[in-house]
């Protein structure tokens, strides 16, 4: 059994149900990407997996135990989350923000240690923000800031890391930059990554495991090369397209059909 699974969960906000009886398993050591059209429940699923949202029924299991019954700090030492939006306290430096990732490893009796210092330093170096350590976070560019938040999540030292739309609001070169960083963390550090991404082509290029959601149900899952077809894209996103090989990586590349052909098809 995989470390992180959702066992027939029903998810919703107040009375609005987003997903019913949904089950997913996150393969260990994978870079799993959840894709789907707007409002398909992909962020909701990620929020449930990261215990931000309590399922109305069913259970999210971490190492076989209900994630909501485990002590909060214990979960936070195993599973990290980069939320869609975080607030950098006014006037905080990069090093200070990253060191806040050590929170779940500290307590009243266990204060800051040389090991914390080392891990913070490593986290900043592996995300390429070591040079910025003494800069103020609010002076950084969007791409740099996202790297700093990722560094904070890394300092948490969790084998599992969940990222909710980590590329939103970034320019294309920073989007690729952040995704490269994720791929590197996955490959060199062996962390299990789960991300929600908007861009299907980014997902197909970087994911080792893809989960395609529509209306709160899993339509397909597996390696991108195995499951991304024109038929699947039409089924999930309701859009006609061609799927060709990415000339750079050989992964599936989704090319939407030209407007006239789409219009002709829909008549």
């Amino acid at each position: 059994m995989q470390r992180l699974t959702a066992d027939s969960v029903t998810l919703g906000y107040d009375q609005r149900i987003i997903a019913e009886n949904l089950s997913v398993e996150i393969p260990d050591n994978s870079f799993t990407v959840i894709v789907g059209p707007n409002a398909c429940g992909k962020s909701t699923l990620l929020r449930a997996l990261s215990r931000m949202l309590k399922p109305d029924s069913g259970d999210v299991l971490l190492d076989g135990q209900s994630i909501h019954r485990l002590p909060a700090k214990k979960v936070a030492r195993t599973l990290g989350l980069l939320p869609q939006s975080s607030i950098a306290p006014d006037g905080i430096t990069v090093a200070d923000l990253v060191s806040r990732g050590r929170y779940p490893h500290q307590g009243l009796l266990r204060q800051w240690s040389p090991e914390d210092e080392r891990i913070v330093k490593e986290s900043m170096e592996s995300t390429g923000v070591g040079e910025l350590a003494d800069r103020y976070v609010d002076e950084l560019s969007g791409g740099q800031r996202q790297r700093v938040w990722i560094a904070m999540a890394l300092a948490q030292q969790t084998p599992l890391l969940l990222l909710d739309e980590p590329t939103t609001y970034l320019d294309i070169q920073h989007q690729i930059d952040v995704l490269d960083l994720c791929a590197e963390l996955h490959e060199t550090q062996g962390r299990t990554l789960v991300a929600v991404l908007h861009d299907l082509n980014h997902a197909a290029r970087y994911a080792t495991h893809l989960i395609a959601l529509r209306d709160g149900a899993v339509i397909a899952e597996g390696a991108p090369g195995d499951i991304v077809t024109a038929q699947l894209v039409e089924e999930v996103f309701g859009m006609r397209c061609q799927v060709i090989d990415d000339p750079e990586t050989g992964t599936p590349l989704v090319v939407p059909a030209a407007r006239k052909r789409r219009v002709a098809a829909s008549v």
Partner: peptide
Amino acid sequence: ARPLNALEMGDDTAKALGAH
């Protein structure tokens, strides 16, 4: 003081760090 530090970074981040 420490949990309040975590709370200042937003509810989701605080919760992800294991703060109550």
